[in-house]
Amino acid sequence: MTGAPVVSLPGACARVFGREVRLAARRFGQILQPVTFFLMVTTLFPLALSPEPSLLRNIAPGVVWVGALLSSLLSLEALFRVDLDDGTLEQLLLSGQPLAGLLAAKMLAHWLLTGVPLVLAAPLAAASLSVPADALPVLMVSVALGTGIIGFVGAIGAALTLAGRRGSVLLSLLVLPLVMPVLIFGARATDLAIRGEPAAGGIWLLLAMLILAITLAPLAAAAAVRICLE
C-alpha cells in the first residue's frame, strides 16, 4: 500500500456501487428470488389461519414485517460470500482506499437491490391481507427504512460469519437479536397507520436508527472483513 491512490474515495465508492448494480442486472433472477419468497411467506398466513378480512387486517403488519425481515436475511448470506470466493474482497482491502467507505457503497447498493423490490411488493402483500389503502404509504416508508437498517446491521453479521463454519444459521442467530427493535417499531407504526392513528413517531425512530446504522455499521463490517482476511 504505497503511493497515493489513483482514484478518489468517492470515485472508488461509485465504481463499487456501479459494479454491484451491473452484476445484479446480469443476474436478475437473484433479485426476484427474495421478493418471491416474501410474497409466498405472506400468502401462507391467510391459508394457515383463516381468510377472514378483519383477522387478516389485525395480523397484517406483523406478517408483512416478519416476511420482509426473513427475506432480507436470506439475501444477506450472499452479500460478501461471492466476493470472498473470487477475491474481490481482498482487492478492496488492498486498494489503498478506506475499506469502510467501499463497504458502505456495497451495502448501499445491496439496500437498493433488495430493499426497493420489497418496498414495491409490500403493497401487494398488504392488499391481499385486506390492509386499507390509507395505510400503504406508512407501510412502504417503514419497510424502506427497515430493510436499510437490516441490511446495514446484517452486513456486520455477514462479514463476521465469513470465516466461520456453518454460515447461514449462525448469521440469523447473530442478526435477529440486533434487528428485533426494528421489527417492533416498524410493525407498530404500520399497525397504527392501519387503525388510522398518527404513525410518524415510529417512522422518525426508524429513520434515526437507519442513520445510526449507516454511520457505524460500515466501520464494524470493515473490522470484521479484516479479521476474516488476515
Binding site: 463476521l160 466461520g164 470484521a224
Partner: peptide, 19 residues
C-alpha cells in the same frame, strides 16, 4: 455460537469481540 464457529482461536476472539 459465533465464538464456537471458528477453529482458529484468535479469529474467534476478534470476531466475537466485534459482535
Amino acid at each position: 455460537a459465533l465464538r464456537s464457529a471458528f477453529d482458529d482461536r484468535q479469529r474467534a476472539d476478534r470476531a466475537s469481540a466485534v459482535l
